[in-house]
Write a protein that binds this DNA or RNA. Structure first.
Length: 468
RNA sequence: GCCCCCAUCGUCUAGUGGCCUAGGACACCACCCUUUCAAGGUGGCGGCACGGGUUCGAAUCCCGUUGGGGGUGCCA
């Protein structure tokens, strides 16, 4: 028995679809666990050929989710266009074998005749006219009578009445092959044994299967997986939905979280949902895939991502966050950023992030010359009972604190709060806003310890002055 | 219109005739913890679309209905 070959054939459109990512992952898992090959074939259109960055985008996106081109199970990328000669050759064989015939009717002709006769679709009018190739002549497949049964690994047997399938076009009037034919020929040429793709292709499958058979080959193993849908249960589309995998990457989602989440859409790993790739790769089976479409839920993805962020080591977290920390969009400038400080604070930052992009905003005040005040929070904190007194009391207490350490600062502050008969948590607001600019955020005393006595007191006094 | 697919909490799913009083996760709510906000812990809310069969027994098998989706190009 020869090793199975799974093909993944995206068409480059300038971005990589999350639905495609899941299909790729499934093909990839199978290729690995069955000791087969993941064949990447790009369906390059005329436009895509002029934009090599589009295909590069696919390769990059695959690499991001762990499908690396240098893996021994990976083959490609190949391009559909490189097989153009074979597409035409196959069409000629089909014609020679009587499986296809030429037709000189244009789309308008077909429409007119249908209107006159009250029909729909192409009715095989040129089947016996004996036409040969010529300008404007399309080659049509002669659909045999009978029933075509597609054996699908996820759906079982699906049968189609051939009489309901029209004689579809194989070659255009200009001699160019149609996608349906090109696809079959490519799969055949590349010895593809398994075609795992989205459900939307299922209605076309009997046509492809008939081409396989007419060309004298057994069809591959088919598997049509359910599509991903939006909140209105429509197939995810570029126009309406955020479908670009790159976009999630750029927004700070971890590839591990994305991969893990994608795997759970239409399939469930044994045991915990959150699972390392290695286990899922071995357990994944097409037979276990669900039959119905799944909603791509950003909330759940975010939950997965937060979970993965919390599981990172501080060093790993820092490394992953670096692009956002040093970016122009960060609230502080790169020269004020301090890796050692971030590393020390990482354990309190991580549980407060759902994406890596959240990180700079959580501890911005540590790296800012002055905190950026949230006006609403400021107003609220300042009208609180004894706010000004607490602020002054804290200044007095902290300028004399024996050792500038988080635990001692806390003890010291608690005394101030107690002297005003306030609970520490409640009383903290004015101090917190003076130091961080906000009334909520990570624990106060650890960052304050890092900020140092001088800077902390400077901020507290500045806030006191701001109250005026 | 015609063809095909699909149907378990709001969402993602477990479930392959008795283990189901239907399990988990996300979301939501409450409480606990707590230095604010998170995180964490505990608990709660909530579902087999409907109608017929088959069977001693059906979420699970069959038929129908309804609802949803997809496909029907000289697009890919």
């Amino acid at each position: 028995m020869t090793a199975p070959r799974f093909r993944f054939a995206p068409s480059p459109t300038g971005f990589f679809h999350v639905g495609g990512a899941r299909t790729a992952l499934w093909n990839w898992a199978l290729a690995h666990s069955q000791g087969g090959t993941f064949v990447l074939r790009i369906e390059d259109t005329d436009e895509a050929r002029n934009r090599p960055e589009w295909t590069q985008g696919i390769v990059d996106a695959l690499a991001w989710i762990g499908i690396h081109a240098d893996d021994p199970h990976f083959e490609g990328p190949y391009f559909q266009s490189q097989y153009a000669d074979q597409h035409v050759a196959a069409a000629e064989r089909l014609f020679a074998g009587g499986h296809a015939y030429y037709c000189d009717m244009t789309g308008a002709d077909v429409e007119a005749r249908n209107k006159a006769e009250g029909n729909q679709g192409y009715q095989g009018w040129s089947r016996d006219r004996g036409l040969g190739p010529g300008p404007g002549h399309v080659l049509r497949f002669r659909v045999p009578s009978g029933t075509t049964v597609v054996h699908d690994l996820v759906r079982g047997e699906v049968s189609f009445d051939n009489s309901l399938i029209e004689d579809f076009v194989l070659l255009r009037g200009n001699g160019n092959p149609m996608f349906l034919l090109a696809n079959v020929v490519d799969d055949m040429t590349m010895d593809i044994s398994h075609v795992v793709r989205a459900e939307e292709h299922l209605p076309n499958t009997p046509k492809q299967q008939m081409i396989w058979q007419a060309l004298g080959h057994e069809p591959p193993v088919w598997a049509h997986v359910p599509v991903l849908v939006n909140e209105s249960r429509k197939k995810l589309s570029k126009r309406r939905d955020k479908v670009a995998l790159e976009m999630y990457r750029d927004e700070g989602f971890l590839s591990e979280a994305m991969v893990n989440y994608l795997m759970t859409l239409g399939w469930a790993p044994k045991g915990d949902e959150i699972q390392p790739w290695a286990g899922m790769q071995d357990d994944f089976r097409l037979e276990d895939v669900n039959h119905s479409p799944a909603f791509f839920d950003l909330k759940k993805l975010s939950a997965f991502n937060g979970e993965y962020i919390r599981r990172m080591t501080p060093a790993g977290f820092l490394a992953a966050c670096r692009p956002w920390l040093l970016s122009d969009t960060a609230p502080f400038t790169a020269d004020r950023f301090d890796e050692a400080v971030f590393l020390a604070l990482a354990p309190v930052i991580q549980p407060r992030c759902t994406t890596l992009a959240d990180a700079p905003g959580v501890i911005d005040f540590v790296f800012l010359a002055d905190p950026v005040f949230d006006d609403e929070a400021w107003a609220k904190a300042i009208v609180a009972p004894n706010a000004v007194e607490v602020l002054r009391g804290t200044i007095a207490a902290w300028q004399d604190v024996a050792e500038w350490a988080a635990d001692l600062l806390k003890v010291s502050f608690d005394d101030v709060a107690a002297s005003h008969e306030l609970k520490p948590g409640k009383a903290q607001a004015p101090v917190r806003i003076a130091v961080t600019g906000r009334t909520s955020g990570p624990p106060l005393y650890e960052p304050v310890e890092i900020l140092g006595r001088d800077e902390t007191l400077r901020r507290l006094r500045a806030a006191e002055a701001r109250i005026g």
